[in-house]
Each structure stands twice: as C-alpha cells, then as structure tokens.
Design a protein around this nucleic acid. Structure first.
Length: 140
DNA sequence: TAGGCCATCTGGTCCT
DNA sequence: AGGACCAGATGGCCTA
C-alpha cells in the first residue's frame, strides 16, 4: 500500500477544558474533520469498487480509473437502455451492442431527455438518452 | 523523468 | 454549532 503522509488524526489527547476558540479545540476539530473526510472518501472508493465489479472491463487487466469507471458505467447504461427500449433491434445475438467505447459518450456529447417508451410501444413519461456517436445523434 | 492517478489535508459553503 | 460535501493544493507511487 501507499505510504501516506503522517496523519494527525490518530486518537490522541482530548482537552476537555478548552474553550471553542482555543488552538487545542481548533486542532481537535480539524483532526475530527480530517477523519470524517477520510472516511467519506473511503466510502466513495468502496462505491467505485462496487461499480467496477458490475461494469464490463473488456479484458482489461488493469483496474479502471475513477474517471474511466464513470465513463464505462455511462456507456453500459446506455447500451442496456437501448436493449430495453428496442430489444428486437439491439438484442440479436450477432449484434455487438456493447461495442461502445469510452470516447463514444463524452459529457459534452449527450443530453438527458425526459421521454420514455414502454415495451408495448405505448409512450409514457420516462427518461431517455441521446448522445453523439461517430458524428451521429443517437437516441436510446 | 514526466505524466497520470490517487490519498490526504484544508478551508469554504450549505444543511440540519 | 457541527457535520456533509466540495474543490484546490500537495506530495507519493507507478508506469511508459
């Protein structure tokens, strides 16, 4: 594991008589805030690990970065959404419906719309997704 | 060695 | 008032 900067959060002395402005209190609060922030970031990283497990890796032996994980999750959701909204077009065995690459879905290229279509073809309120793929506007 | 990725610290802001 | 969240800064590790 990485060697981390010496942490000042190890549970140490607790001053009980200090007022709210004393250096001791300030330091104690900072240490507590650091510990909370560390815990929060660990929770975030746990969530990223969970996301990596359910997102396709396409044979990558290297762990996806956080950014790549988010991009891949976005592409994956788009692909699954396409299957759900138009299964006959996208779910055929010969279809390479998961051939979206990271670059296919860039934040500047997509927009979320509020439209949905049921499997029976009946339209109702839902969320759909559109993005730029190879220069073409794709709606799923 | 440079660049990418990451963990941690820190101060600011918002919320309860 | 204190906790949660966020973004910037900093420095360590790893790989090409």
């Amino acid at each position: 594991m990485k060697s981390r900067r010496p942490s000042c959060t190890d549970s140490g002395s607790e001053s009980s008589e200090s007022d709210s402005k004393s250096p001791e209190t300030t330091t104690r609060r900072r240490m507590a805030a650091n510990a909370r922030e560390r815990k929060r970031m660990q929770g975030l990283n746990t969530a990223f690990d969970c996301l990596r497990k359910v997102v396709p890796q396409w044979g990558q032996d290297k762990k996806l970065s956080k950014y790549e994980t988010l991009q891949m999750a976005l592409s994956y959701i788009v692909a699954l959404n396409r299957i759900l909204t138009d299964p006959r077009r996208h779910a055929a065995p010969h279809r390479q419906w998961l051939d979206l690459q990271f670059d296919c879905v860039q934040p500047e290229n997509y927009s979320c719309l509020m439209r949905y279509e049921s499997p029976s073809g009946q339209e109702y309120l839902h969320s759909s997704f559109s993005y730029q793929l190879d220069g073409h506007q794709v709606h799923v």
